[in-house]
């Protein structure tokens, strides 16, 4: 299925996912040239509409748009009419009147980008919605894994942390299983959503066992604001059981790679020694993010031209 939106991974077919990844390879080259800019989206306008704090994702989308020669405008919830109580629909309708081509949306409510997509003629990209999905993160993770390992099929990928609240975990579980990886999810029982097995993943509550023989160890950020709640006693307790240090890393394959979507809590879910170690591809993920977002903007802009709406 090709549409002019990128709202989730769940409804993407494998062919479309591979198209995103293959196209990103070309843009990866562009970002390593002397002139890191192509004229492809000249005259197009991209609005980054972020209702949640973000440095990496917003900057990544902004750089991606600029390297394609699009005009990029950033709107964040603080200091905007959103903080004055305007509804999401009104905000979107007003931005729409300025004729943007693409709206990149991050919102704390699951489904907000889908709602916006139904109410706008622009292309909509989900940059993270609540605990639902974060499709470009999953695409950049897959891109990074593919570059490191050659292929994703049959790899063992262990995703560890607060799976319930992680849109990164959800998007990755969808994407990696579609591409034929064996996905394990690991975390405290209190952080594991009921029925997660239905995504085709294997569930573990023992980190060492989950890491055994893995090709990829993907750590999730522990949200410190959830500390003290029932599901999460103390950082030290969590770290002892589910933090990635050298001991658990040694359970994985010798050439396993370590991933983290950022921002990292050093010493909580990941040991600094591992985060900065030779098996870490955490900064490769960030570089891949720009390429993947360039590919997304490029492909969606092409689709938008097909549509009678624009």
């Amino acid at each position: 299925m090709t549409t002019k939106h990128l709202l989730d991974i769940e409804t993407l077919d494998t062919q479309r996912i591979v198209q995103f990844l293959d196209t990103a390879e070309v843009f990866f080259d562009v970002s390593r040239r002397k002139v890191r800019k192509v004229p492809t989206l000249r005259g197009k306008t991209v609005i980054n509409l972020f209702f949640e704090a973000s440095t990496r994702t917003r900057t990544s989308f902004e750089i991606a748009g600029k390297r394609l020669s699009a005009d990029v405008v950033n709107v964040s919830s603080s200091g905007s009419s959103v903080s004055k109580g305007e509804t999401l629909l009104d905000t979107v309708k007003n931005l729409e009147a300025m004729r943007p081509d693409v709206l990149v949306i991050r919102h704390s409510s699951s489904g907000a980008p889908h709602f916006v997509a139904k109410n706008t003629a622009s292309s909509v990209i989900n940059a993270g919605d609540g605990t639902h999905e974060h499709p470009t993160q999953a695409l950049l993770d897959a891109f990074t894994i593919r570059r490191a390992k050659g292929s994703i099929r049959d790899l063992v990928v262990t995703i560890t942390g607060d799976v319930t609240h992680s849109r990164v975990a959800r998007s990755n579980a969808h994407l990696l299983t579609k591409l034929g990886a064996k996905v394990r999810v690991c975390g405290p029982r209190t952080m594991m959503p009921v029925g997660i097995e239905q995504l085709g993943v294997e569930v573990f509550d023992d980190f060492a066992r989950a890491a055994e023989g893995a090709d990829v160890l993907m750590m999730l950020r522990i949200q410190r604001e959830r500390m003290g709640e029932v599901l999460f006693p103390t950082a030290r307790e969590y770290s002892r059981q589910f933090g990635l240090g050298r001991r658990v890393l040694s359970m994985a394959k010798p050439d396993a790679i370590v991933m983290h979507p950022g921002p990292m809590n050093r010493g909580v879910e990941i040991d600094p020694e591992v985060a900065d170690g030779p098996q870490s591809v955490i900064l490769d993920q960030v570089e891949a993010g720009v390429a993947v977002r360039m590919a997304t903007l490029y492909l969606l802009a092409g689709e938008a031209g097909q549509s009678p709406l624009s």
């Binding site: 004229p39 492809t40 490029y298 938008a304 031209g305 097909q306």
Partner: peptide, 14 residues
């Protein structure tokens, strides 16, 4: 990436 017809007539070319 240097075409002048992106989105004019068809899907983004490979």
């Amino acid at each position: 990436l240097y075409r002048d017809d992106l989105g004019v007539s068809r899907a983004a070319p490979v």
